[in-house]
Design a protein around this nucleic acid. Sequence first.
DNA 1: GCCGTTTTCGGCCCGACTGTTTTCAGTCG
Length: 565
Amino acid sequence: MNNKKIAEVLYEIAEILEMKNVKFKPWAYRKAAQTIESLNEDVKDILKEGKLEELPGIGESIAKKIRELIETGKLRYYEKLKKGIPVKLAELEKVEGLGPKRIKLLYDKLNIKDLKQLKKAAKKGKIRKIKSLGEKVEKNILEGAEFVKKSGKRFLLGMILGEAEEIKELLRKRKEITKIELAGSLRRMKETIGDLDILAVSKDNKKTMDFFCGMSTVQRVLAKGNTKSSVRLKNDVHVDLRLVNENEFGSALQYFTGSKQHSIELRKIAIGKKMKLSEYGLFKGKKKIAGESEINVYGKLGLQYIEPELRENIGEIEAAKKKKLPKLVKYGDVKGDLHMHTNWSDGRNTIKEMVEQTKRLGNKFIAITDHAGDLKIAGALSDKQILKQMKEVNKISDGVKVFYGLEVNIKKNGDLDVGDSILKKVDVVIASIHSGFRQSRDLLTKRILKAMDNKYVKIIAHPTGRILLGRRGYELNFNKIFKKAMDNGVALEVNAFPARLDLDYLNVKNAVENKVKISIGTDAHNIDQLKFLKLGTSVARRGWAEKKDIINCFSIGKLTKFFER
DNA sequence: GCCGTTTTCGGCCCGACTGTTTTCAGTCG
């Protein structure tokens, strides 16, 4: 029973209560679920310390339920609720246009419990006969049900960023559009994106909406109005376009950037000040006191401006109240890339090509860090090849400082697969785990701790091994790892590869709070992937990191010292 | 069910679009 499972149960309770038209409780259960979901610590540990009720949104009753879940693996209250409406909720909720109320209605009237039964009933025309539902609803449900298989899907930020920019450009070129911005989780640089939100100001809303819904990439128009339209593209990406007035752009941008939880907290602050906040502005009575810019909206709420990447309701609002937000690292502050592969191991481009691309991108330094040791599948270098490559790299003097590095493997017992006699000759050693993911939390932690005790290791790469939309990272005892990293002067990597982004932002936040240094590396295997540096920086920003926390922001002299330490 | 520079009781974010009704509920974000 881990945090995620507990959160799932709480979410489902909220849904069932919603079906039963219970007021306000769903809100409470959802809030509690969100709290549990975004915890860094294991709920079990918090329970042991008796501090469950100190968590936001968790009071006596929900604390008791969490305790029962952890101690018995079950929750009688939940089982009883489920028995009342035995439907496959998670499955049915993925159908566009189906929410808790309609799911209950369909169960009550037609005994529909899952997707298969839903489709069957829709095809037979049974749904249109229910009062309050009609032919169109039935048609939409059927289409939604067919689509479920493909959807529910999220997209990697790194894979969708380019497409989002293209759509934005397409719209920006329209004469009637005077202002446009990408909003939503993409603007917050969340690692995966469910859909795209675009906000714009237009002199002719109808014309803009006609154009947007008629783009050649559109598969289906889900809704089309004068201020809001939704489409699904042929590649299954869902895009929303909202049009607002110029003087509402700031409040609208705030609202559509989210996160939802962050925005809700802002609205509560507004209420506390006898104001009202919506996408149309911040109002005191009928008088609008902010709306044209985000900065003013935050300002009038008594808050520091909060950068989009921070808006996850994980303490940023409290910090902004006290004017204690971090001085976030800027995208331009990151001057070099500390993890990449060339055609010496499993990369595609030569050392020279990587260096040239680095110059084009305007960066000042890189570390070439090909695989070495036992990882033969990745073309890992032998000792002899290492010495040869080192000579090659040291010859380069091209306006870009090139550190010579290696990515070595942490074996199952925590030993490295390259000997110290070699490691001591290279500028920077990155150690990482590529096998034995299934070991226990304890063993994996010990393995990494042991690797960090090798005095040549300066960076631990992709520390949790997660693959976004693929595999969960392994659990580690980060308290121990942070302490060792501090003691030994080892940096933890934010791997900027789109499917990794590992450490994640919550772990970065923890690391930085523990004064651990962060290293950003793209893990690029070709020159195109060097641009992912921005993604890595976004994770650092989401993790509240400042310039001083990130070794990529050091001067070359300071970085050299860090490697030599 | 939770929570408090309005409160230990009485609130709980806000608005667009759709479809089915004729004033609104449900869904979505």
